[in-house]
Amino acid sequence: MHKTRSLNRTSPVDIMARTGKWIYLIFFLILTILPLIWLIISSFKTNYEFETQPFALPVVWQIQNYIKAFQMANLGRLFLNSVIVAICTTAFNTLVASMAAFAISRENFRFKNGLLTIILSGVLIPIIALMVPYFKIVSGLGLYDTLPGLIITYSAINIPISVFLIHGFMSTIPKELEEAAIIDGCSFTQRYTRIVLPLSIPGLVTSGTFVFIYCWNEFTYAMLLTSSEASRTLQLGIRFFRSQFVTDYTSMLAAIVITMVPTIFVYIFMHNRIISGMTSGAVKG
């Protein structure tokens, strides 16, 4: 065994494999990460530096680009809107999805599997095809151009994925724990609040992370369902305030970096959960 390995290591095929491997790894690293690093460095430059020396480091790191970004685009208000929408949607969606997932995973009733299949097949529907009905529904509820309109819409869009993730997690919790609790006189609701929910926290956190990132980054429906600054989110802000930044490009880059910070932050702390959530079969089917 040891011998074959050392033999293989020096064969031309192996040298080719190793060289190719590193070229491939570094090629993709350059494409995915280098533009982001360039963006962040450029956001600290003066406009003159940005246009004349695109690859150099800034002589003085222009922190005021970030201050200007906040002042010019009323970014504070948009940032607050995004935070409200993302947090409320995550909480509401997690509550609704976990209740449904609890009933489906812990109880037996007719149509239970059919119901689960129908809900999960929601992930296959192209949401952009539903622009007209969503616009009509949200307007009809009197929620056009309001934050609750976005919160309800995002909560609903994410029901299939969060029911899938939470149901998958709850199914792994042994039933014996609940049986003991039933003997002790636990009601249906108490089994949910006192036993299954606390044990499902890792699953809830995974699902919540997905929903939070979705809400923070969502653009199409934020554009369709809002029109005033009072209810617009950050993503729309950086898209539509481009004209205000026409003479100050690097401040716009600073605004873009500001919108990326929260999800990158979440990703740094939660990447194991995000990756395990995806591999638990976010696409199994």
């Binding site: 990460i33 982001l36 990132i213 980054n217 653009f219 990158i264 990703y267 990447h271 990756i275």
Partner: peptide, 15 residues
Amino acid sequence: FRTAYFLPNVISQVA
């Protein structure tokens, strides 16, 4: 590498 290649997936399409 795995973490780095996945990073763009948590950044918005707008950005």
